[in-house]
Design a protein around this nucleic acid. Structure first.
Lengths: 156, 156
DNA sequence: GCCTATTAAATTGCACACAATTGAATTGTG
DNA sequence: CACAATTCAATTGTGTGCAATTTAATAGGC
C-alpha cells in the first residue's frame, strides 16, 4: 500500500500534517510577528490583548477580562500588575463586592489606544490575506475552538 | 455612520473579531484539550510534538528538531533534558561535529509511539470537523504562518 | 595554515499559561 | 439566621517561548 507510512507526504504521522501543529506554530509566529511593533509601545502580545479588551470597555473585573481572553487569574494577576506598574491601568477592589478587582485605564493607558491603531493595520499586511479570507479563517477557528472547549467541559 | 465603532458586532476593535486572537485562543484551547490525554503518557503538549518528530526519524540534532517545530535551543534544551530524565530519549554529542547533540529514542520512548496512537484519533473527534475541513484549515494556516515568518525575516 | 566569521547548544532572564491550592467575601438553603 | 457551597482573586509550582549572551567547534577567506 503506497499511501501508508511516514514517508508519504500526506501521512498523518508527519508533524507538518498535524492540524494541531499548524495552529500551534502559527500562534507562535503571530506572537513573534507582533513583538517588534508592540515593543515600541512597551507591551507584550498578551498585554496588548488585555489592553484591547480594556479599550472596548473600562472598569471590568479580572474575571470578565479572563472570560474574554480565556485566561485565569494565575495568568492575569501578574500580567495586570505589570500593566499597573507600567502606569497603563488601575486596580481597585470593588466596594460593593469585595471579592472582585476592577481594572480601569489611566490617562496614559487610554492615550495608548491611538498609538496602537497602526498595529492591526500593519499586521493585516503581514498576514498576507484578504479581509474575506481572514474573516472566513477566523470563524472556522472559533468554531473549532468552541468544539474543543466543549470537549474539555464534557470530559469533566 | 452605523457601521463604525466598537458597538458594531463586526467592529475590528472588538477582540472577538481579531484573527490573531482567534489563533491565539484556539492554540491555548488545543493545549488544554490535549493535556488530559497526554498526562496519561506523562507528556506535555510540546514534549509530545518533540516525540512525534523523533518517531518520524531517530537521531536528529537539536537544530533539526528546532527547525521542524520552529523552536530554538532556549526552549528545546530544557524540554529535551526533561524527556531524557523521563527515560524517553538519549542525548549524545556528535563525534564528527562536536557542536551538535544527537537526540535518539530509548526503547521506552520508541514503545510510547503505540500508546500515543489513540491521541490524534481522539483529538480528531474533539476538533469536531471533517478530514477535508481539517486539511483545508491546516493549509490556510500554514500559508499564513509562512507569510508571517517572511514578514519577520523581511523586517531584519 | 591562520584568523575571522559562522554555527550549534547551552545558559540567563523575563513573561506567559495553567493546574492546584489558599483565603476572603458572598450566595443559597434550610 | 446559621452555615455549607460557591465565587473571586491571589499564590505556588512547573513548563514553556524567546531574546540575548556565552562557550565551544567548525568553516571560509586570504
Amino acid at each position: 500500500m503506497e499511501t501508508a507510512g511516514a514517508n508519504n507526504p500526506e501521512s498523518l504521522l508527519k508533524i507538518e500534517n498535524f492540524l494541531c501543529f499548524a495552529i500551534y506554530s502559527t500562534a507562535n509566529a503571530v506572537t513573534r510577528a507582533y513583538q517588534p511593533r508592540l515593543a515600541a509601545l512597551g507591551l507584550t502580545y498578551p498585554q496588548y490583548l488585555a489592553m484591547v479588551v480594556l479599550w472596548e470597555e473600562e472598569n471590568q473585573t479580572v474575571k470578565a477580562i479572563g472570560d474574554k481572553l480565556s485566561l485565569d487569574s494565575g495568568t492575569l494577576t501578574p500580567l495586570l500588575k505589570r500593566l499597573e506598574t507600567a502606569g497603563l491601568i488601575t486596580r481597585r477592589r470593588d466596594t460593593v463586592d469585595e471579592r472582585q478587582v476592577l481594572i480601569g485605564l489611566t490617562a496614559e493607558g487610554r492615550a495608548m489606544r491611538d498609538k496602537a491603531e497602526s498595529v492591526p493595520v500593519a499586521m493585516g499586511k503581514a498576514f498576507g490575506c484578504t479581509m474575506d479570507e481572514a474573516k472566513g479563517l477566523r470563524s472556522e477557528l472559533i468554531t473549532m475552538r468552541d468544539n474543543l472547549v466543549e470537549s474539555i467541559e464534557g470530559a469533566k
